[in-house]
Design a protein around this nucleic acid. Structure first.
Lengths: 209, 209
DNA sequence: TACGTATCCCCCTAATTGGGGGATACGTTT
DNA sequence: AAACGTATCCCCCAATTAGGGGGATACGTA
């Protein structure tokens, strides 16, 4: 497969790393770094001139952080691919970054080759992630198999947790509203709660739903 | 990094592919195939004897499908790493597989090297995915930046969509219940709905929340 | 100045929720 | 055969909630 060179911008406050990434990418001959910035604010100011197709973004920056910056860039130029490169792999940070529109998430111990591959991958519509991050993301979907709830109860609690009323749930499942009530009573018993809110909170925490 | 050989089981109804995968893995010298099965039912029967550490699982199987089988294996042996290998990359299928506990999702056009790498990755706690699948998964987190809702309104609708009552939302945000009501009125106006259920449905569909 | 945003208040009614008490039917396990 | 779990449906009742209507104040920005 052929690969056009992409316009890359680097946002990283550490000068050593910034220069290192720039050298690495330019030396590869595939892509070219059009600019580098030491803060999110500077990167946003220069966005229209830089016209990056790919941005390597640090998270911990002086002033505006990299996640907020990702969000801002996506608002202005939604097609920009943003790769987070950071030492932190805190799960909240990872999911916040992805919600903000980041296309990938690499840790700074990635090898030069991995970083170049990640840029290629992003250029081709992939989502490069460090192994550990990828597992974190995939695991976030995984349901707990040790649920005390029956399939029917799980269905009903899931609908309830999506803001549906008893009537709507009954309608969706083609059963009577009274049946829904009965199931919910059992759910509350099993989870040892006595309100919708508590049931949802506990069930989500334990990934029953 | 060193790598212990893993016990691999293949579940695939196509004999050609099944034998091909087996040959590939055994020839690599890293891992060994302890058994292969042409159906989910057979694989489950043999689970205790096979004691697989990694399972390559097809989705389209005669009888029980690969996703249901993934769920069953995870119930009995939660530590088993299951890699889905299929021609289908329908998004519902991908997310169902991950919810069922699959650790990775590869498409059948993956090269032999990619498949071997995926097994290594799974053995090391990664989550191997084809580029396109990875992007699908990452994109599922992405919020729509073109929301008509303000930050405050988005916060409130998010809490509402998690089953919270006006009172709880007010409490969480340290504002009066009347303020919550005001915001919700504005949200309904903007989304042109007049109920919680409709607002949540529309907002979710458009990834405002 | 006007607009959007965020905050708070009143009134009112209908719908919803949750707790209590049941019942029937079906399949599995003891 | 009896007990259990599951799924289905019904009644009554009280408190809370949701939604619609009408406001107000304050702050910052266009």
């Amino acid at each position: 497969m052929t690969l056009d060179g992409k316009r890359v911008v680097i946002v990283e406050d550490n000068k050593g790393l910034r220069d290192g990434f720039e050298l690495l990418i330019n030396a590869s001959g595939k892509h070219h770094v059009v600019n580098t910035h030491e803060s999110a604010e500077r990167a946003l100011e220069a966005l229209e001139l830089d016209r990056p197709e790919i941005v390597l973004m640090d998270v911990n920056l002086p002033g505006m952080n990299g996640i907020k910056c990702t969000n801002e860039i996506k608002k202005i130029k939604p097609k920009t691919e943003i790769l987070i490169i950071t030492v932190f792999e805190n799960s909240t940070l990872v999911f916040d970054a992805l919600c903000a529109g980041a296309s990938g998430y690499l840790t700074k111990n990635s090898s030069p080759l991995e970083i170049l591959n990640a840029i290629d991958s992003a250029a081709f519509g992939g989502a490069p992630m460090s192994q550990h991050i990828a597992r974190m993301v995939v695991d976030s979907f995984k349901k707990n198999n040790k649920t005390p709830l029956t399939v029917r109860e799980t269905d009903i609690l899931t609908l309830l947790s999506n803001g549906k009323s008893y009537a709507t749930i009954a309608d969706n499942l083609n059963i009577s509203k009274e049946t829904v009530k009965s199931h919910i009573k059992r759910i509350y018993e099993k989870l040892q709660v006595n309100s919708k809110e508590d049931a949802i909170e506990i069930a989500k925490k334990q990934k029953f739903i």
